[in-house]
Amino acid sequence: MTAPKRLTDRKREAILQAAITEFRASGFDITSMDKIAATAGVSKRTVYNHFPSKEELFTEILHKLWASIRARADILYQPGLTLREQLRALLLAKLQLLADHNFLDLARVAIAATLHSPERAQYMVARMGEREEGLMVWIRAAAADGRLKPLDPDFAAQQLHGMLKTFAFWPQVTLNRPPLEAPEQQRIVESAIDMFLACYQA
């Protein structure tokens, strides 16, 4: 049985959710700590007790984004399975994350807040790249096993990620389209695998 959250933990979560709501509605620069406190139903002092600055609050939101990515276990290369079934598992796991409403909310906040700050944008892109290394590791292992042609693992992984995000991330984040349903996810995954294997399978 899961222990109930402490009051301080509930307040911290309420502040984070309020910040996500306000950053989405007004943007990072316009949103004030007073507004976040009001939306969270706590005092401004309580907000500052948890987060000394708006920048630190935003950083915590980014950390939640990275944690949601990291929580999806990487699928390791398995010599005994076909490339197609391994790629299918990898890409479907990625699409399940991209269809998660909490993930999309966090991504919208993070992207909106980086638009006018090159430093924040560089930080976000770098961290996102770190969290997408699982597919690159799998590609490197498959190539080392002789099942893929000589290739640049990072480039090939970015190609696959790009094929997924074209349909299952950017339209949702920028145009507020709904996450893809399972049949459309399957279609995109199989098409991406076809293209990848046609180009790289040994």
Rank of each mutant, 00 (worst) to 15 (best):
A14H: 09
Y48R: 01
E55L: 13
Q17W: 07
I15W: 01
M124N: 05
E133I: 01
F58P: 03
Y200C: 07
F103A: 08
I20N: 03
Q185P: 08
T21Q: 09
H50A: 00
M33Q: 02
R187L: 15
E13A: 07
A157D: 06
R120C: 01
Q78K: 10
P4H: 01
L16I: 07
E60R: 12
L87P: 04
K11Q: 10
H116G: 05
T21K: 10
A192T: 06
D152L: 03
I36F: 00
A3S: 14
L62S: 02
P171V: 01
I61G: 00
I61D: 00
L115I: 06
A182S: 14
R72W: 10
F196M: 00
R131E: 15
F28M: 04
S32L: 04
A141K: 02
L95F: 11
I20H: 00
E132T: 11
I20S: 08
L151I: 03
A144D: 11
I193Y: 00
H116W: 06
T82C: 03
A142Q: 06
G80M: 06
A112M: 12
T166H: 15
I139Y: 03
I15S: 03
L148E: 05
Q78V: 08
N102K: 13
R72A: 10
I193E: 01
A144W: 05
V109P: 07
R70V: 08
E85H: 11
V125W: 14
T8L: 14
A142H: 02
P153N: 12
L83N: 05
A67Q: 09
S32F: 01
E119M: 10
Q86G: 01
A198S: 15
D145A: 12
A121W: 08
F51H: 02
L91N: 00
A19V: 01
I139C: 05
R24E: 15
D29G: 10
L160Y: 02
A99N: 05
R10E: 07
F103V: 04
E60C: 09
M124I: 07
A198I: 10
E181C: 06
R187G: 13
I30G: 02
Q86R: 04
S117R: 05
G27H: 01
Q201L: 13
D34A: 15
T59D: 09
A37F: 00
